[in-house]
Design a protein around this nucleic acid. Sequence first.
DNA 1: TATTGTTATACTCTATAACTATA
DNA 2: TATAGTTATAGAGTATAACAATA
Lengths: 147, 147
Amino acid sequence: MSLPTDIRKTREGSFGWMLQRLARRVEARLADRLQALDLNILQFAIMMTVLERPAQTQAAIGQGFDVPAYAISRALDGLEARGLVERRMAAASRRSFEVHVTAAGQALAPQLRAIVQEVNAGVTQSLTAAETDHLLELMARLLADTE
Amino acid sequence: MSLPTDIRKTREGSFGWMLQRLARRVEARLADRLQALDLNILQFAIMMTVLERPAQTQAAIGQGFDVPAYAISRALDGLEARGLVERRMAAASRRSFEVHVTAAGQALAPQLRAIVQEVNAGVTQSLTAAETDHLLELMARLLADTE
DNA sequence: TATTGTTATACTCTATAACTATA
DNA sequence: TATAGTTATAGAGTATAACAATA
């Protein structure tokens, strides 16, 4: 059973609002933790996606999280200068690069994963495991269904 | 009963990620709708909070959603120039202003509320009312409990 | 001495489009 | 002619701190 319409309307009205506030909070914590590693959030996102699936082209990475090509390009410049990733010529096409994680990048991976765990656990700590699972499921459906 | 630990860990790992993606999506839609009214998101947020509770000082508005004073100041410049709000000298202190919505601002309110409804409904359309309620409740608890 | 609000300034992020080289 | 990636440039957004007025 749902709440009365007018109350639901009011609460619905705050959905985007709550989402923004939660997202800002998570982002601030993440950025704070990444600062110690001298990584920004985009570089972190790229590291995570390339660790998960190596040899992606820059275009594929950009499409993975709606970031324009030029931003990927610059973020990679930083990561490559620090020796965490490297661009290799793609086998399929000489105008593409495959992005690979270096040994130094692999060495950093455990710290990156630990940060993910800690930030997520910190934000969801007041929910039970079952509640967190449900929340994740609902969010996953929203992401999958809407566009 | 919860999922096996390793799977939960992996899914937990994506909580912040899903949150970011959802928030970005909502923000993009909102910004898109607000463009027609020539309002940015901060100006919109200020309008909504002042409509809900008039006569707030700028400091109070800023604390309401973690926006620094200078940003409130500039956003109000724009809103005031367009005649949507006005700064009145506060009764309590001559160094504060109370922010009030003008008649023109009130006239805009229904459109603003309609945008909120539509954006939220659009994003949550794939959930039942009960599921949306639950999602809102879980998010509200996260916001309330964490800090 | 602390607070409210404004402003100047610099810095970062983002967006646009021009550019090279491939296909 | 279209694509992958880079780069230059401009614009928006954000942060820092200095400032005036008031408490």
